[in-house]
């Protein structure tokens, strides 16, 4: 198994072989630089990362339509600011996975620590296990689908995008939320300031159906979810809402 091959492989028979980076042998810098050197239309569309062992900033800042498979658990900020790429983590992820993601998809086979998808602007983040606290904090357009539960303060100050939780949500869901949509199938421990349950209209069922399909979670039915969003009472300051600030 090749460890590092920074030179482009010209031979046609190796054109489609995955490029493999074993982080036990190759520094992180080499992996990320190689990922940044890929341009759109390159044949190097398959990448594998071995032995991440909880290290940080794995596969960050990619800007090309490639597939990256990370085998093992990673630390903070895996796939941070991702654009176009599909990054799959065959393990669990530390804080801030796919933070500020722009587009593409990040799939986590295990659990996610806090701040999953923080400030994400686009793309799809799928967490097949549970997500910890502050999932989707300050999200700005990203779609997040979590098969398990999400922890406290999830979708805090969420501005835009959709958070779909097949399990339960922890305390203070959607505190100070703006226009993001929250769909929860299980229980919600408590709603945060200015977050309320809202009517599930046909357009929301459509959005949810599409997201569940794209996340490969078609065993859940859109009708089983409740929708939460902003009561918009904090949109313009009013002293009688001071307790909520």
């Amino acid at each position: 198994m090749a460890t590092s091959n920074l030179a482009k492989a010209p031979a046609p028979e190796t054109q489609y072989a995955a490029r493999v980076f074993d982080l036990a042998k190759v520094p992180l810098r080499e992996l990320n630089q190689a990922l940044h050197d890929v341009t759109d239309g390159s044949n190097e569309t398959a990448w594998e990362v071995l032995n991440p062992k909880g290290n940080h900033a794995v596969a960050v800042g990619i800007d090309a339509a490639i597939n990256v498979d990370v085998h093992g658990s990673v630390g903070y900020y895996c796939a941070g600011m991702n654009q176009k790429a599909n990054v799959t983590v065959h393990g669990s992820v530390g804080p801030g996975v796919a933070e500020n993601m722009m587009s593409g998809a990040v799939i986590v086979k295990g659990d996610a620590s806090q701040y999953a998808g923080a400030t994400g602007r686009g793309g799809l983040l799928v967490i097949e296990g549970n997500a910890s606290s502050r999932c989707g904090i300050s999200m700005k357009g990203i779609n997040i689908v979590v098969r398990g539960n999400v922890g406290h303060m999830s979708a805090f100050m969420a501005q835009s995008g959709n958070l779909v939780v097949l399990g339960d949500a922890g305390d203070a869901l959607g505190d100070s939320i703006y226009e993001a949509r929250l769909f929860v199938r299980g229980s919600v421990k408590s709603l945060g300031a200015d977050c309320i349950e809202k009517e599930m209209r046909p357009e929301h069922i459509e959005i949810l159906k599409d997201l569940l399909e794209r996340a490969g979670m078609t065993d859940a039915k859109p009708e089983e979810f409740k929708r939460y969003g902003s009561a918009r009472t904090l949109y313009n300051f009013n002293i009688d809402n001071a307790d909520a600030y």
Partner: peptide, 29 residues
């Protein structure tokens, strides 16, 4: 609408986490 800016970063707290945040930004750039 009024726009409220947070007082803490959404995805790190303290110097030990800041070190990791700086690493991420350096790696991206």
């Amino acid at each position: 609408i009024d726009q409220r800016s947070a007082c803490r970063h959404p995805d790190w707290t303290g110097p030990d986490d800041l070190e990791i945040k700086i690493l991420e930004i350096r790696e991206i750039t």
